[in-house]
Amino acid sequence: DMPHRFKVHNYMSPTFCDHCGSLLWGLVKQGLKCEDCGMNVHHKCREKVANLCGI
Rank of each mutant, 00 (worst) to 15 (best):
I55R: 11
K48S: 10
G31N: 02
K33R: 14
V28W: 05
T15K: 08
N51R: 03
D36T: 06
Q30P: 02
K44L: 07
N10G: 06
M2I: 15
H43I: 06
V41G: 04
M39A: 12
C45E: 04
K33H: 13
F16D: 06
S22C: 13
V8M: 14
H9P: 03
V8T: 10
D36Q: 11
S13G: 12
N51W: 02
L27N: 03
H9C: 09
C20V: 00
L23H: 03
C53G: 15
H19Y: 09
L24N: 03
G54R: 11
P3G: 15
E35G: 13
H9L: 12
D36C: 14
F6V: 04
H9I: 13
A50H: 05
R46P: 06
C17Q: 00
A50K: 13
A50F: 11
R46G: 08
H42N: 05
V8I: 11
N40Q: 05
Y11K: 02
C37I: 00
E47R: 09
V28T: 09
H19K: 08
D36E: 11
N40G: 09
C17A: 00
S22P: 05
K48I: 11
C53K: 13
L24A: 07
P3C: 15
K48Q: 14
K33L: 12
C20I: 00
G38H: 11
M2A: 03
F6L: 09
G38F: 15
V49H: 13
K33N: 14
N51F: 04
C34R: 01
C20P: 00
G38V: 11
D36I: 05
K29V: 07
C17V: 01
N10C: 10
G21K: 14
M2D: 04
F6D: 02
K44I: 06
D18A: 09
W25V: 07
W25N: 03
M39P: 00
C37H: 02
C34L: 01
C37F: 00
T15L: 04
N10E: 02
I55M: 05
L32Q: 06
E47V: 12
H42S: 07
G54C: 15
G21F: 12
R46N: 07
K7Q: 12
H4W: 00
C53N: 08
K48P: 10
C17R: 00
D36Y: 06
P3R: 15
G21A: 13
V28R: 07
P3N: 15
L24Y: 02
S13N: 10
N51G: 07
F16K: 14
E35A: 14
R46I: 10
D1N: 13
V49P: 09
G26H: 01
M12L: 09
C53S: 15
F16T: 12
E35F: 11
H19W: 15
V28M: 15
L23D: 03
C17T: 00
V41Q: 04
H42G: 06
P14K: 04
H43K: 10
R5G: 15
C17F: 00
E35K: 09
D18G: 12
R46S: 10
H43S: 09
C34V: 00
C53T: 14
D18F: 07
P3E: 15
H43P: 04
V49T: 07
S13I: 10
S13P: 03
R5F: 14
Q30I: 02
F16P: 10
L23Y: 06
R5H: 15
L32W: 11
M12T: 05
G54D: 14
C37G: 00
L32S: 12
N40Y: 04
T15E: 05
T15I: 10
R5M: 02
F6S: 05
F6W: 06
C53W: 05
F16R: 10
M12C: 08
V49C: 04
Q30H: 02
N10K: 02
N40R: 10
D1P: 03
M2P: 06
V41R: 05
K44Q: 07
C53V: 09
H4N: 05
M2Y: 12
D18Y: 11
C53I: 12
K44E: 06
D1M: 01
D18H: 08
N51I: 09
N40H: 09
C45D: 04
F6Q: 05
E35I: 14
H43G: 11
L52T: 13
S13R: 09
V8W: 07
A50N: 09
H4Y: 02
C45W: 01
K48W: 08
C45I: 00
D18W: 15
Y11M: 04
K33Y: 14
L52I: 10
L32R: 13
V28G: 06
C34S: 00
N40P: 04
K7T: 13
M39F: 14
E47F: 07
F6R: 02
L52M: 09
L52F: 14
Q30A: 02
H9F: 15
F16Q: 10
L23M: 10
R46Q: 14
E35C: 14
G31D: 02
T15Y: 07
I55N: 07
F6P: 04
G54V: 10
K48D: 09
L27W: 07
M39R: 07
K44C: 09
M2E: 01
G54T: 09
L23C: 06
M39I: 12
L23N: 03
W25S: 04
W25L: 10
F6M: 07
L27K: 01
C34N: 01
G38A: 11
K29T: 12
L32P: 03
I55H: 12
I55K: 14
K44P: 13
V8P: 12
M12Y: 10
H9A: 11
H43Q: 13
H43Y: 09
M2L: 09
Q30M: 03
G54H: 09
V28K: 06
G21I: 08
V49E: 14
G31I: 01
D1L: 02
K33V: 11
K29C: 10
K7G: 06
Q30G: 02
V28P: 01
C53P: 14
K7Y: 07
S22G: 11
C45S: 01
C37N: 01
C37D: 06
W25K: 04
I55V: 10
L27D: 04
W25R: 04
H43T: 06
D18E: 12
H42V: 01
V41H: 02
V49D: 11
H42P: 00
H19G: 14
G31S: 01
D1C: 03
V41C: 13
G21M: 09
D18S: 10
R46E: 06
S22L: 14
G38Y: 08
C34Q: 01
H4I: 02
L32V: 14
K29W: 08
S13W: 09
M12G: 09
C34G: 01
Y11I: 03
V28I: 13
C53Y: 11
T15W: 05
S22Y: 05
Q30C: 02
V41P: 00
M39C: 09
R46W: 09
G26P: 02
G31R: 01
A50Q: 08
L24R: 01
L23R: 02
N10Y: 04
W25C: 02
D1V: 13
H4T: 03
F6G: 02
H42I: 00
L23T: 06
W25Y: 04
A50C: 10
K44N: 05
H9E: 12
V49I: 11
N40M: 05
F16H: 15
A50P: 07
L32E: 12
N10W: 07
P14A: 08
W25G: 03
V49N: 12
V41N: 07
G38L: 08
V8C: 04
D36V: 05
T15C: 07
T15M: 12
G21C: 15
E35N: 11
C37K: 01
T15S: 07
Y11N: 03
K44M: 05
A50V: 10
D18Q: 12
K7S: 14
K33C: 14
C20A: 01
H42K: 05
V28Y: 11
Q30S: 01
S13Y: 12
N10L: 03
